[in-house]
Each structure stands twice: as structure tokens, then as C-alpha cells.
């Protein structure tokens, strides 16, 4: 054995001690998301869409239903794209670009609201099933199985058939069909955590069931939930647009992408861009959330870390 060189005398630097605080985990995650090129692309797309939706009244040349007296220029229906109307006008002479911008509001609100609803309901059901176990677990999870047994659009169709068409009902339907997803995620992580020693320790310290569940067990299912939510918003927007396309969502003249697509469907062979553009918007939005969701999964799931370049 060789002698190690003598260690330098220990110096205590107070500044470095305080600076050595561990970085909060969300900042580490945020940093990794930004470094993941695909996730960043997703974030940029979503950011652009949110900006378009929020700033729609500023960006859009016209009110989405402007025709006749509100028109900026004399109306020409089904005009080809031009400087005045970059995406042309539809059969009622409404500016397509303005309607697309307002459409972003509808899609994003439906996506976020439907997924929020599904997460709240799914988390409650999953947590109850996983934590209480027994017959509660059996009943809840069988119910979820039955819901999963219906192809998603079909179940949404059935719900809309019951409640009647309308934007709010589409939102509810799309939210309800994704509840089982979140319930399963939460239940499995509750089951995984429930018998760990730290939970026993918390219980021994006298914590109530509710406190154990909400403060200790549930936060552990947060990262799979975030990933599922990001992917889920994309799916919800896609499903809602499909229902809108089938004429079960909002009524005309609402500027909703799915509805705009079906409204202009008869013009496919003459003014194809009126059909093409809302579809591109839907695709970009869904792509944004899928990219972000994929990226978040890479970042938040340690097992996958380093698999992608």
C-alpha cells in the first residue's frame, strides 16, 4: 500500500454549505425536459397553441362568425387564400384563419377540462380501491373493466346519445371514458406503496388514514399520472374533434375544428384547403401533447433513462 498524500486541512466555507442544498426534483425534471429535443418541440407547439388561443381576439382579423355587417372587407364566400384571408373564406364568407385561431380555444379547453375531470375522478376511485381493498376494490375495478370493454369512441357515442349532442356533453363523455386509465395507474401505485416501511412508520406515528393516503402515498403516483395526462390531453382532443365531426359536439356557428371540417366537407373537391387546415391544426395539437408526454416519460421514469439519445 502506498501512502496517500496528506489531506489538506478542512476548511469550512459557509457559503458553499448553504449553496449545497439539493436541487428540488421538479427543477431537475424541468431541466431534462428542456434537454430532450422531442419534448422541447412538444412544449414549443403547445406554447404556440396556447398563445394563439389566448391572443385570438388580437391575432384574428375578424370575429370568428364575422359575415355581413361585421365584415372588414366586402364578403366573398369560398375565396381562395389571399393576403386579406391567408386561408381563404368558407361558404359563409367567414375568414378561415380567424376561425382556426378561435378553434384553438375550444380544443384546448376541452382537452384540459376533460382530462382534469378524468384525473380527479380516476384518482379518487383508484386510491379508494387500492387503499381500502376488499369489496370496494373489486366493485370499482370491475366497473373500470366494463368501461374499458367499450371501444372509447363508442362509449363516448353512447354517452352523447344519452345526454344529447352539445359541447359540454362531449367534454363529459371524453372525460368519463378516460377515467379507468387514471384509476388503474393510481391504484397500482397505491398498492405498491401501501406496505412499505415508511407508510407503517407514519401509521405508527398516529397519522390518520386520509393523511397517509394524500400526503404520503398519492404523491408517489404523481409522475405516471403526469405522463398519462399529457398523452391523455392529446387523445381527448382527438376524440372530441371526432365527435364534433360526427355532428355530436357544438352546434354551428361554433368555431370548433372538428365541426369546421364536417361543415366544409361538401367543398372538399373545390376548396380543399377549407377541409385540410382544421385537420392540420388538430394533428399539430395532438402531436404537441404526444411529444411532451413521450418526453416526460423518458424524464420521469428512471427505468427508461438513457435509452434514447
Amino acid at each position: 500500500m502506498t501512502h496517500a498524500p496528506p489531506l489538506p486541512p478542512p476548511t469550512v466555507d459557509l457559503a458553499s454549505l448553504t449553496a449545497a442544498q439539493p436541487r428540488p426534483p421538479w427543477r431537475t425534471a424541468a431541466r431534462r425536459v428542456v434537454r430532450n429535443r422531442l419534448a422541447l418541440a412538444g412544449l414549443v407547439i403547445i406554447g404556440g397553441l396556447v398563445a394563439a388561443a389566448v391572443l385570438a381576439p388580437v391575432l384574428a382579423r375578424e370575429h370568428p362568425n364575422a359575415a355581413g355587417i361585421w365584415a372588414v372587407a366586402p364578403r366573398e364566400s369560398r375565396a381562395a387564400p389571399s393576403a386579406a384571408h391567408p386561408l381563404g373564406t368558407d361558404q359563409l364568407g367567414r375568414d378561415q384563419l380567424s376561425r382556426m385561431l378561435y378553434g384553438a380555444r375550444v380544443s384546448l379547453v376541452i382537452g384540459f377540462a376533460a382530462v382534469s375531470l378524468a384525473i380527479v375522478a380516476g384518482t379518487l376511485l383508484g386510491a379508494l380501491a387500492g387503499y381500502l381493498g376488499g369489496w370496494v376494490d373489486t366493485v370499482v375495478m370491475r366497473l373500470m373493466d366494463v368501461m374499458l370493454a367499450f371501444p372509447s369512441i363508442l362509449l363516448a357515442l353512447a354517452i352523447v346519445a344519452l345526454t344529447g349532442p352539445g359541447l359540454m356533453n362531449v367534454l363529459l363523455a371524453v372525460g368519463i371514458i378516460s377515467i379507468p386509465n387514471y384509476a388503474r395507474i393510481v391504484r397500482s401505485s397505491v398498492l405498491a406503496e401501501r406496505h412499505k416501511e415508511y407508510v407503517d412508520a407514519t401509521v405508527a406515528l398516529g397519522a390518520s388514514r386520509r393523511r397517509v393516503l394524500f400526503r404520503h402515498v398519492l404523491p408517489n403516483s404523481l409522475s405516471p399520472l403526469i405522463v398519462a395526462a399529457s398523452l391523455g390531453i392529446g387523445t381527448a382532443i382527438l376524440d372530441a374533434a371526432g365527435l364534433g365531426f360526427l355532428g355530436l359536439g357544438g352546434r354551428p356557428p361554433l368555431a370548433e375544428w372538428g365541426l369546421m371540417l364536417s361543415d366544409n366537407r361538401q367543398k372538399l373537391f373545390s376548396e380543399w384547403w377549407l377541409v385540410a387546415t382544421p385537420g392540420v391544426a388538430i394533428m399539430l395539437t395532438v402531436l404537441g401533447f404526444n411529444l411532451l408526454g413521450d418526453g416526460l416519460r423518458d424524464v420521469l421514469d428512471p427505468r427508461l433513462r438513457g435509452r434514447r439519445g
Binding site: L38, G234, L238, A241, G242, F245, G258, L261, R265, L268, F269, W272, V275, A276, P278, G279, I282, M283, L284, V286, L287, N290, L291, D294
Partner: peptide
Amino acid sequence: LVGVSMPVFWLGLMLVYALAF
């Protein structure tokens, strides 16, 4: 990823326009 994000009803209409019409 683009394939997963594409609305099937939109793709259908585009195919009808380009390849059929």
C-alpha cells in the same frame, strides 16, 4: 408519432381528395 396524432377522419378526406378525386 405523426401517425398517432393524425385524425383518421381528416386523413380519410385528404386521401379521397388526392388519390380518388
